[in-house]
Design a protein around this nucleic acid. Structure first.
Length: 905
DNA sequence: TTTCGAACGTA
DNA sequence: CGTACGTTCGAAAG
């Protein structure tokens, strides 16, 4: 014990606020690695980055969690009892960096000045101190908060003990309560030690049962209750994993002894020892002077640390918010009919997974009222009032992510109408090149600093009678949404994007929600078969590759090892350079093969192909849900041009180019024997937009003529009759056409067509001679963007490109290519989105059951009952064809079939 | 454990 | 040294 008297009298439980427990070693390590060591020094060459990061963490957590008591626990050097049980304990761990070692005493003197008690006990770890204090507090009826990155603390989580795990740096924390632990590990917190004993802990150098991961371990524990009972029945467990368990029982038992926290250390019991408010401002400033800390952190030290009791200045603009109402029944009905009758900002809690997830709590914020509804205990009166309020289209609602809100509430059986603003979409339309922002990020960006301080202060005053921290947080989120909405609406006006939000993106979000919920059916058995077929092929081609290089079994997937073999061992001529060495991409390998004919290269390329295919197949299989369908997620706020993106899994990059790859599309099919898939795609939409925007008469005529576009253009460029255009002419012309839309350079064109740069220049010049309107448009559009600062699509979607005026040539030219491409790609995206609205309303208006399943940039995939086919074909062709009037017609191709492959073109 | 770059699938 | 994405892997950071 270092800082406190052992013999204090026992005292009542800690009831005035939670006890905050911090693992000093773990957090100092994190702080050390999160901040650059040379960015923080005390002027004498001693690093202070860990001290600074630790202080920031402590200040933030105290401000956010408002604990009444704090203790920081440290490990002591010289080992612990655990080292005597297992001599490899924590073996293989890197030494503590020298620059960090010296910072521990600095952290401890800082804590002394702050009046924060810190503890260390010989022979025990910080974990044990924390475990003892946390469980004791909980037993006495108090609450504890633990801050550590050490997973051993998970076992302590309970109704009264919450774990805050740093997720990024030292200030972003993940809140782990019993539900969160169960969600993440599939076992209750008290079973976590059992799970860890089976799986092992690499950070502590404790090996687990080989072949047993968290999934298997959780399955066993849920089947047998706990580890003791599982080991008693080890003989019953079948399969490889069962045998492995029997072979490693001794390890498991050792692990279990090692990872059990010690709960009975002798530590001071008097709450006064841990109470905040004993700091000395002068001493602390002295310590900060010594550390050469700047003014920011001094200003941020909460008064609650300090003993001198000076009142901090009241924030001037603090808005009076009143309390958070936890509303049910009659009270909820009254609020909905009163304070919330004119609309509200919504925030929703609860995980969402299709089929299983649902909203568990809903917070509503309007001027003058802030309420939280527990959706798990909602009574019938509250339920019906809420359901009709949500479904009332005349009551405007706002959320940070409307599509997610729709899913969450739908999972709970609630439908919403009357969405007014999606903050995420609004933010994206105004700043499409910014990364998508969470609520905290939006607050940072949109509230002035004064207002943020006021907001933080007033939010600290908010509290819920029940004291439920998660619900309080939710209420604050709803309140943040409410404050942000007018600011983002103003922003939408400023960026001329209100109509894009209201009439395009927000209605589209509803459609995307339906598409995601629908999913697309996939034949798992067929994918399994495809995968198996390739397994042998993959092995054979790998063996053959190894044979070509003397049998050395290198990792064919490692560019580094490949470089060594290709360019060192085999001495092949080096090609293109990458940042980290020489390229081994397919193009380079193919060139090399042409030059040398080395069999290894052909095998390697074949291995790449088959590996990639298997990878895609296996990824898809993992995403097949219980309903036999894959439910991707579409994002509206990722691609700066306005395209959608798709992930989990990405269904916008399913192979199409090769025969082998296309077979994967054959596994996607309509469900039931009476339905078919219908695909509809725009043909050459980007070139049509180019024709429209450039008003080039030749290009417009090319589309009006109805001839093959590239053939027609080639005949003009090369000045020959259309029937005399050869395949080489056509493909060169096609490359130039598409290159133009991407901001082509003679260099890039030359490389792609494998011609000389001067030939490429000549080709482009010839093109521009015949299609001068295109040249003028491209030149003018970049200049216009340089003048205004942004490019624009046909619907007025903007993309800001400050780099167009950069002095750095590389950056400027990059921005110029983006400026050439964005209006074209973005306008195509706009048109497709308009088409989706038309198609959806056409289907609904006709009362059809057909539905849109996927969008792949210029293609829609629909699932159609056979008897609706002709009607749907008409709706889709019309809807897409008439989505937006251009000076050339929009041409739509349609295919129908049982599978995506058959329906494709 | 988390992040980065290379590679490669789509439009 | 053409645009826009997402996923995977291995290697290198932390």
């Amino acid at each position: 014990m270092s800082s406190s008297d052992q013999n204090l009298p026992a005292a009542p439980g800690l009831t005035d606020g939670p006890l905050l427990l911090i693992d000093g070693h773990a957090m100092a390590f994190r702080a050390f690695f999160a901040l650059p060591p040379d960015g923080f020094t005390d002027g004498r060459g001693q690093s202070t980055n860990a001290v600074y990061g630790f202080a920031r963490m402590l200040i933030n957590v105290v401000a956010a969690e408002q604990p009444a008591y704090v203790a920081v626990a440290f490990d002591m050097s010289g080992g612990t009892f655990r080292d005597r049980i297992y001599d490899q304990y924590k073996g293989g761990r890197d030494e503590t960096p020298a620059q960090l070692v010296g910072q521990f005493p600095m952290i401890q003197s800082m804590l002394n000045a702050m009046g924060v008690t810190w503890l260390e006990v010989p022979d025990f770890e910080a974990d044990d101190i924390i475990a003892t204090l946390a469980t004791r507090t909980a037993a006495e009826g108090g609450e504890a908060l633990i801050v550590t990155s050490d997973r051993d603390a998970i076992q302590l989580v309970s109704e009264r003990i919450t774990l805050l795990q740093p997720v990024k740096g030292v200030t972003e924390m993940r809140r782990m309560d019993p539900a969160a632990v169960e969600e993440k590990y599939q076992v209750a917190p008290e079973r976590y030690c059992d799970l860890a004993a089976l799986v092992g802990e690499s950070a502590d150098n404790l090996p687990g049962v080989p072949g047993v991961g968290p999934k298997t371990a959780a399955k066993w524990l849920n089947q047998y209750g706990d580890l003791t009972n599982l080991l008693a029945h080890a003989e019953e467990i079948t399969g490889k994993a069962g045998q492995s368990l029997r072979d490693h029982i001794a390890d498991v038992e050792r692990n279990r002894r090692m990872n059990a926290a010690v709960l009975d250390l002798e530590l001071p019991a008097d709450p006064a020892v841990y109470a905040l408010g004993r700091g000395d401002r002068a001493a602390l400033m002295g310590v900060f002077d010594d550390l050469a800390f700047g003014p920011t952190i001094r200003k941020d030290v909460p008064e609650v640390f300090l003993a001198d009791g000076e009142e901090g200045a009241e924030p001037a603009a603090a808005e009076e918010l009143g309390e958070i109402i936890s509303a049910q029944g009659e009270q909820l009905a009254r609020l909905l009919a009163g304070e919330f009758a004119q609309g509200a900002a919504l925030a929703i809690d609860g995980r969402w997974e299709l089929g299983s997830g649902e909203a568990t709590a809903l917070a509503l914020s309007a001027e003058g009222a802030l309420a939280v509804v527990d959706l798990q205990t909602l009574d019938p009166e509250g339920e019906s009032a809420l359901a009709s309020w949500l479904a009332d289209a005349a009551v405007p609602k706002t959320a940070h992510d409307v599509k997610l809100a729709i899913h969450q509430l739908r999972g709970r059986g609630l439908e919403v109408a009357g969405w007014r603003t999606d903050l995420g979409i609004a933010e994206f339309l105004c700043r499409p090149d910014q990364r998508p922002t969470d609520l905290a990020g939006l607050l940072m960006r949109h509230l002035s600093e004064d207002l943020q301080v006021a907001s933080a202060a007033s939010q600290q005053e908010l509290s819920l009678d029940s004291g439920d921290a998660a619900q309080e947080e939710l209420a604050r989120a709803a309140d943040a949404v409410r404050r942000l909405e007018p600011l983002l609406r103003a922003d939408l006006e400023k960026h001329a994007a209100a109509s894009l939000h209201d009439d395009l993106e927000l209605p589209l979000a509803m459609i995307l929600a339906d598409m995601e919920e629908a999913g697309i059916e996939v034949d798992d058995a067929q994918l399994a078969e495809l995968d198996e077929e390739r397994e042998g092929q993959q092995r054979a081609v790998a063996e053959s590759a190894y044979a070509h290089i003397g049998g050395d079994r290198i990792n064919l997937g490692s560019p580094k090892q490949l470089q060594e073999v290709l360019y060192e061992r085999l001495g092949l001529p080096k090609g293109r350079r990458t940042k980290t060495g020489y390229s081994t991409d397919a193009e380079t390998l193919a060139d090399l093969f042409e030059k040398t004919g080395h069999g290894f290269l052909a095998d390697l390329l074949a291995h790449r192909d088959v590996t990639k295919m298997r990878q895609i197949i296996e990824t898809l299989r993992r995403f097949i849900a219980d309903d036999g369908r894959i439910h991707t997620t579409f994002h509206q706020t990722i691609a700066a041009t306005g395209r959608l993106s798709s992930n989990s899994p990405n269904l916008q990059n399913i192979p199409m180019r090769t025969e082998e790859g296309r077979r994967i599309r054959g596994a996607f099919h309509a469900s039931g024997s009476e339905q078919v898939l219908l695909t509809a795609d725009y043909s050459q939409i980007e070139m049509r937009i180019m024709a429209h925007l450039s008003e080039d008469e030749g290009l417009i005529e090319a589309f009006r003529s109805g001839e093959d576009l590239h053939n027609y253009v080639a005949s003009r460029v090369f000045d020959v009759d259309p029937e005399d255009v050869g395949p080489a002419m056509r493909s060169k012309t096609k490359a130039v056409s598409y290159g133009l839309a991407y901001g082509l350079s003679p260099f890039g064109l030359a490389r792609q067509l494998r011609i000389s740069q001067s030939e490429a220049s000549a080709l482009r010049d010839g093109y521009f001679e015949r299609f001068g309107g295109v040249r003028d448009y491209l030149r003018e559009s970049v200049e216009a963007a340089r003048a205004t600062g942004y490019t624009e699509t046909i619907l007025g979607r903007r993309r800001y490109l400050p780099d167009l005026r950069s002095d750095n040539r590389q950056r400027r030219e990059n921005a110029e290519r983006v400026a050439l491409n964005s209006p074209i790609q973005g306008s195509a995206a706009d048109i497709m989105k308009l088409a989706m609205l038309r198609v959806e309303s056409g289907l609904r208006g006709a009362g059809l059951r057909s539905r849109i399943l996927l969008q792949v940039h210029d293609e829609l995939v629909l699932e159609v009952p056979g008897d609706e086919l002709e009607q749907v074909r008409g709706i889709v062709v019309d809807g897409m064809g008439a989505a937006h009037e251009l000076s050339v017609p929009l041409s739509v191709g349609v295919g129908v079939g049982r599978t995506w492959l058959e329906a494709g073109h």
